[in-house]
Design a binder for these strands. Sequence first.
DNA 1: AATCGTTTCAACCGCTGGAGC
DNA 2: TGCTCCAGCGGTTGAAACGAT
Length: 300
Amino acid sequence: MSEKRGSNKNEEMELRRGPWTLEEDTLLIHYIACHGEGRWNLLAKCSGLKRTGKSCRLRWLNYLKPDIKRGNLSPEEQFLILELHSKWGNRWSRIAQHLPGRTDNEIKNYWRTRVQKQARQLKIDANSAMFRDAIRCSWMPRLLEKMGSSQSMPSLIDSNATATAAGMIDQTPHDGRPPQQFSNPAMQYPFENCSSYEPSGSENHSPSTSSGSMTLPQLPYLSSSPANSCNGFTFNPFMSGHCIDHSGYGLDTVDLAPAPSSQLGSSVSDYSMATNNCVDSIGDGLWNMDELWYVCKKAT
DNA sequence: AATCGTTTCAACCGCTGGAGC
DNA sequence: TGCTCCAGCGGTTGAAACGAT
């Protein structure tokens, strides 16, 4: 036993850790090209890499794999992440399956650095129903707006038959319920029904499906308002002019300061008007913290 | 230009579940 | 049935990059 432990220790001492070098990457790529993926421990031993099988696997899956998509997440991808996370929680690999070329690690990082950041700034729990509703009622419409204007959805439609922001989020394989579908979310996503959170593993409580379009559970504090309105807001998918930013993710902080009380009592159009003028100075983004704050505030 | 605080993301760690024996 | 090994998952960390002053 002690002998085995000693030999393991010697092996561990030889193991490299930390950032991968170009030589290591080349070695790994070459080995996988010859022998294929999988059997990572064997790969680690036979390839000459002084890495653990785990490390090799991670490097390949998260960085070296040819179909890995690099760069900022598109609005469609962001929308999907928000939508799928609201259903499945922190099931990153599962969410990643619906975003071709994106890794669970990347999605997880996105959620932590972009989404949770907003929750922190709002001083609310990122896992709270309140925050999720704020996302659904303020952030996601903004993404739809972005998607509608960029008309870039075909990329997802083409690359992912089971889950697209533009069509169907297929749940059938996971829980046997009918899939949620909205043939054109920019036009049809019904925001009158903001969702409550469903923790991971509680998929039996997922949003219901109604006549081919996504219908989400209605919150008690939301009025049964007309389509495209939520919690007193009117969400026109093509409404322009929100506090938005230049970042590729569109989620950088805009302004955490609560709206003046006079605005809280106004109609959404008034409120939108009040915040619209920041567009020119801030740019083309998706995230309006004032509005989000208002959604959260009204929910309490 | 230098310093410091913040953000990003690649990589690691611990745990779990499945397969094989 | 229980053990071991391995792949995969989600949480966390820390170095590098970036931005503000």
